[in-house]
């Protein structure tokens, strides 16, 4: 097992290097190159620009720049933002809690809805419930997420005023994760949690609709496959109650592929972060990323892409390993 995990991790290293190269080349080849942020400043002379380029080693050969850059990324030196002059790692760490709060809550709720729906759909195959759910999953799966977010904001925030239209805290409360936030949180825990919950509702719905549709379909087909196996028929022939059959005999094998799928969908959720955060002005990494694009703030952009890619690779490994652990048929 250990050998399998080590091999799996070793395979991921060239992929991570490849990702860093891809991202680096996008920065190099895009108009203006890494210096694009300064190209827009009319008060800067060509000499000043050349001096910056020289200072940063941007006049060296591209490959040499890449190697230098890669090793400093590796050492944890991700540079400073062109805009705020703060270290990129600090900027990202400040924004990470908001993103994680949104992602993890959405992730749990998504599974709590998708799995029962899929099982229900499979057990009542071709019934009216199944057909309605099938049509709904098609619609959910085809949903342009950002548009759904807009419609939710219009209906439930702008019109009905049930939920706030965006942000993570009320304007009069301390900003989320700021120096004053946590003392305030400790002083009024109920108000703070209530406010967070109210701000979470619409972003979470936006974030999970597509995934719930996809995951419930996946659960449905996995359940259908198991329920048609011979041993289930045997269990029925023995006169076991349908509920017992479903819970004890069918559910566990049907959940096997689903567990892998669950690990694989977390990265997809991270991708959805940029969409949801931009619609709801949720102060997480996605919003930070979007604000850094216009400014051509490459250190921030690259740092975020790099971190997310690493996340994705780690979850791919976790998916492979859990699958190997829980499925006794797999020999590694």
């Amino acid at each position: 097992m250990t050998k399998f995990i080590i091999r799996r991790i070793l395979i991921s290293i060239p992929v991570l290097i490849g990702i860093s190269f891809l991202v680096f080349m996008i920065m190099q080849l895009a108009p203006g190159g890494p210096m694009a942020a300064f190209g827009q400043n009319p008060r800067m002379t060509a000499e000043q620009r050349a001096a910056i380029a020289h200072n940063w080693g941007l006049d060296k050969p591209v490959l040499e720049q890449y190697v230098t850059w890669f090793f400093s990324m590796f050492r944890g030196d991700w540079g400073t933002s062109f805009v705020t002059r703060q270290p990129v790692t600090q900027l990202i760490l400040d924004r990470l809690p908001a993103t994680l709060l949104l992602m993890l809550t959405a992730y749990i709720i998504q599974q709590l809805i998708a799995l029962p729906l899929g099982i229900l759909s499979a057990l009542k195959r071709y019934s009216l419930t199944d057909k309605v759910l099938t049509v709904l999953t098609y619609i959910g799966f085809s949903m342009p997420t950002f548009w759904l977010g807009l419609i939710l904001v219009y209906t439930f925030a702008a019109n009905l005023k049930w939920f706030p239209s965006g942000q993570i805290t009320n304007p009069r409360d301390p900003a989320f994760n700021s120096a004053t936030y946590w003392p305030w949180f400790a002083a009024n825990p109920l108000t703070a949690i209530g406010s967070l919950a109210a701000h979470l509702v619409l972003p979470i719905i936006t974030l999970i609709v597509v995934n719930v549709a996809a995951d419930s379909r996946y659960m449905r087909s996995s359940m259908l496959e198991t329920i048609n196996q011979d041993y289930i028929r045997t269990a029925r022939a023995k006169g076991l109650k349908e509920g017992t059959i479903v819970r004890r005999h069918a559910l566990r094998p049907a959940l096997l592929p689903v567990v892998t799928n669950i690990a694989l969908t977390l990265p997809a959720l991270l991708g959805g972060a940029v969409v949801t955060e931009s619609i709801f002005q949720w102060p997480g990494m996605g919003l930070l990323f979007i604000s850094s694009i216009t400014a051509a703030d490459y250190p921030v952009m690259i740092g975020i892409v790099f971190l997310l890619s690493a996340f994705i690779l780690v979850f791919n490994i976790i998916a492979d390993v859990t699958y190997a652990i829980i499925d006794p048929r797999i020999r590694y």
Binding site: V15, S309, I312
Partner: peptide, 25 residues
């Protein structure tokens, strides 16, 4: 390409869609 967060890299690559800053800034 499969391990990269697609939307983020597309947004990063959107830098190609802007015109290069003219010489002199």
């Amino acid at each position: 390409f499969l391990s990269v967060p697609l939307i983020f890299v597309l947004l990063l690559a959107s830098r190609f869609l802007v015109n290069p800053p003219p010489e002199g800034g």
